[in-house]
């Protein structure tokens, strides 16, 4: 491998890890706080992508400007879904919540397919395709912008969780539900907000992905799995853990993708199973702090 190749691989991993961090943070927050593994996370990503696509297509809105809209829409959707559906059976055995979110994924993806067809879409702007050249390493502007937005979102989330009253209540609820109740927290509402934030992050990731890759309604599934692997790798402990997981996973994906593209899933899942067999409960504890 030449130096330029290594440089390009490292840069690609960095660019990938930004978006993946946003994807995984939303997933990890919901899992860590409410103990729901949300298999519809990928579907939320796809909705985000279509929001950006739609706004760009109909009103020629710049895709970066549509991110807040896509986040707001998905926050509302996530809040409602948690409130109306997931909350109804949140204490049922695992299979129930797992299947419910699985069913939601299927429902959302197919509704999207119904309304938007299975055609592959992409959001093309004047600056799509342009790239910054750092010596032999190419850095597309869009990906650079996406990395910037990702960093901004991660910082905002971290600040919200640690500095705001609501953020503190969310973390406290994730650590000890009954103790949180004893301080006056309405747990059902906090859960719904948490789910909404998770969905909003998925929406942002979807908006970013719509500019980076061509997509169709099936875009999301692979990202749910990636988010899960990242959480296992990094642990659900806190924002930093998830970022570390995203970075580690991105390196593996980029390296495997450039060497053995045909077996990338098999290799990453093989790693996952091995990892879990050694540490059956994942790498780090559950609480999100």
């Amino acid at each position: 491998m030449s130096g330029a190749e290594v440089g390009q691989i490292a840069m690609n991993a960095l660019l990938l890890s930004g978006v993946l961090a946003v994807v995984a943070l939303g997933f990890a927050l919901v899992w860590g706080i409410t103990n729901i593994v949300n298999l519809a996370h990928g579907a939320f990503i796809v909705i985000g992508a279509y929001v950006t696509f739609g706004l760009h297509d109909f009103w020629s809105m710049d895709p970066f400007l549509s991110i807040p809209i896509s986040m707001a829409a998905l926050f509302a959707l996530g809040f409602l879904i948690q409130r109306a559906l997931i909350n109804q059976i949140i204490r049922a055995p695992l299979l129930a919540t797992f299947l419910l979110t699985f069913g939601l994924e299927s429902l959302i993806v197919n509704l999207l397919r119904f309304f938007f067809r299975a055609d592959t879409r992409s959001v093309m702007t004047a600056y799509s395709g342009a790239a910054l050249a750092l010596g032999p390493v190419r850095v597309p502007y869009i990906r650079l912008g996406a990395l910037g937005v990702s960093i901004l979102l991660v910082l905002l989330l971290a600040a919200f969780l640690t500095r705001s009253r609501l953020g503190r209540a969310i973390r406290a609820t994730g650590m000890d539900v009954d103790a949180a109740r004893l301080t006056g927290v309405k747990v059902a509402t906090v859960y719904a907000i948490t789910f909404g934030i998770g969905a909003a992050l998925a929406g942002a990731a979807g908006s970013l992905l719509s500019m980076i890759v061509p997509f169709d309604p099936n875009l999301g599934g692979g990202y749910t799995e990636r988010a899960f692997i990242i959480c296992v790798l990094g642990g659900l402990g806190n924002v930093v853990n998830v970022l570390a997981g995203a970075a580690a996973y991105s390196v593996v994906e980029v390296v495997v993708g450039s060497r053995l593209p045909a077996f990338s899933q098999a290799i990453t899942f093989g790693m996952l199973v091995l990892l879990l067999a050694v540490r059956p409960q994942g790498i780090a504890g559950k609480a999100f702090s």
């Binding site: 009253r165 503190r168 209540a169 406290a172 650590m175 009954d178 004893l182 006056g184 927290v185 999100f288």
Partner: peptide, 25 residues
């Protein structure tokens, strides 16, 4: 207001954050 058995502090929050969680309402 209850001070529960076994303290039930939010172990991952700082002391000050724990106190401030007490004023949530």
């Amino acid at each position: 207001v209850q001070v529960p058995q076994g303290r039930r502090l939010f172990a991952g929050l700082t002391v000050k954050e724990n106190l401030l969680q007490g004023v949530y309402l």
